[in-house]
Design a binder for these strands. Structure first.
Lengths: 297, 297
DNA sequence: TCGTCTTACGAGAAGCGTAAGAATT
DNA sequence: AATTCTTACGCTTCTCGTAAGACGA
């Protein structure tokens, strides 16, 4: 179960081809063939059917393990190197788009005022990638947001020992167009909306709502990016509903008209919050640790 | 980061000696020396100080990663082999001592009545070992118990994709000797008992209570085994309090006297339950899957 | 001086590439 | 016939063990 062979295996499975995997990994097809043969001999189990190249049931199980395993391996390496590295004066931050809200942006500004010489790089990307970057040491700190019950943690991918701390919770509202029949309501129950038209977005995955409430929540439109502006416009145009933190929605009810967003309707039950968590590995004393403290409430 | 080198590293660190590790692993000292050198060269970081042989800060970080990583690797291997193996007619069950309570023993008996030809092996061991055995495929099913808030999951060690399902929850009571001043009380609040004398046992670790309630809960006696009978006798003899499921405690108040256990006092707040979870990897259709279904409520 | 880790060196094994072979479409 | 995986074979690299060397207690 050499990790080397494991990456080869996942690459072959992904491409469905030995030769394509060889091209990607910089080996000859022959080498790939030998590596897969070695892995199958080691386990004593056929992992791939040939022609077409397709994982066997056992191979499918191994594929489920291989990804997280290799991720943790890279995370471990990064963590060890970090422990040995000198504290630096450049700090790399990874955050999901909705994570850097007004509160956290202000805290970040206050912290930077304390350490004016600190260079900060901020990169926006998806939830999983934030976790991965922090685990692999590509980012020193991560901020990830998501939908959760009050004071419940988010469910982030498991990448080994990583510190997570909630740094912000905010009311979550139902976002809908200004001319939507429900736009004027004082509050809504999520259970009453299971049959509504919903947007599927990485910001508010419908699978998460099903976890929390139950079946339903069919996707009227599946948005694969993670741009807040786009989502707001999709909702305003009536493509479907979604949940957004109150601070993203307009403060006053918009004048009813094409393309405007309503003020957002609070959720009566279940109470859900937009939660932001701070992620980091072991932090040596230094700017990263200081910033982590400053970002906490 | 060859797993091979990783196990060598952990062995050396555990023994604090290259030669002792060589003896355990069946290599020469020279080979161990070269393996550690290779690992350090690969990471570009010193992992062990020599004379005395002791992990550096970076080495300590790697040690924290290596254990879980190697466990997951063995778990992955076991899972793949299980997927390819023939369904067998021997079923291996691992359980913590308190997990096989009256309810589950009855369910198990009912299930066996359905499949009389099925051989069942039951092994009792600690919580972590149950999880490990299931992960590594040494057991087909595991039953682990612990203290939890109602309908909250237990916190079991992370060994990769493993199915856990709560199969039993039972009232948890404060166990105390029959002649204890609090023995007659109708209910107790755990917060009022932070300063009492407590038993530290694997069945009810005080660290868990601190998680749930707060600081306090000093250990008057630390019991390292996991035998229920012994714990009951320790409590009855007045060595300290502990929490036990109601079914373990005597049904009627014992006549006050030396070595008798009181009926047990219910917990008013927080509500805590004795929870049993069923653990298993991916189950192919067969006796193991049938039994898993039968054990669920 | 003794115990312990490191280094040098040779033998064996393992891994990769080239090239030819086999199997499927 | 073309594409794609497998096998054979030689070369290189890696890894281990033996044995000698270096370093501390």
């Amino acid at each position: 179960m050499d990790p080397h062979l494991l990456t080869t295996f996942t690459t072959v499975a992904r491409h469905g081809s030995f030769s394509a995997a060889a091209a990607e990994l910089g080996y000859t097809q022959s080498a790939i063939s030998q590596q897969i043969a070695a892995l199958e001999a080691d386990l004593g189990v056929a992992l791939l059917g040939r022609r077409p190249v397709e994982p066997t049931p056992a191979g499918r199980r191994l594929l489920e393990h291989a990804g997280p395993l290799l991720l943790r391996l890279r995370a471990a390496r990064a963590d060890v190197l970090r422990a040995a590295a000198q504290p630096r004066h450049r700090l790399r931050l990874a955050a999901t788009p909705l994570a850097v809200n007004a509160v956290l942006a202000a805290r970040l500004a206050r912290a930077r005022a304390q350490q004016p010489r600190l260079e900060v790089t901020l990169l926006t990307c998806g939830r999983e990638q934030v976790a991965t970057m922090v685990a692999e040491g590509e980012a020193d700190l991560g901020l990830a947001d998501g939908v959760a019950a009050p004071s419940d943690p988010l469910r982030l991918p498991d990448t080994g020992p990583m510190t997570t701390a909630g740094v912000s919770e905010e009311e979550l509202r139902v976002a809908l167009p200004a001319d939507h029949p429900l736009a004027g309501r004082a509050a809504l129950r999520l259970a009453d909306l299971v049959d509504a038209r919903w947007l599927q977005t990485p910001l508010c995955p419908l699978a998460r709502l099903r976890d929390l409430v139950g079946e339903g929540f069919a996707a009227a439109l599946d948005y694969r990016g993670d741009d807040v502006h786009t989502v707001v416009n999709l909702v305003a145009a009536g493509h479907g509903l979604t949940l957004l933190p109150a601070s993203v929605l307009p403060a006053a009810p918009a004048p009813s008209g094409c393309g405007a967003l309503a003020r957002g309707v609070p959720l009566a039950s279940p109470r859900l919050v937009h939660r932001v968590e701070l992620l980091h590995g072991a932090l040596p004393p230094g700017p990263a640790a200081d910033l982590a403290v400053a970002l906490s409430p």
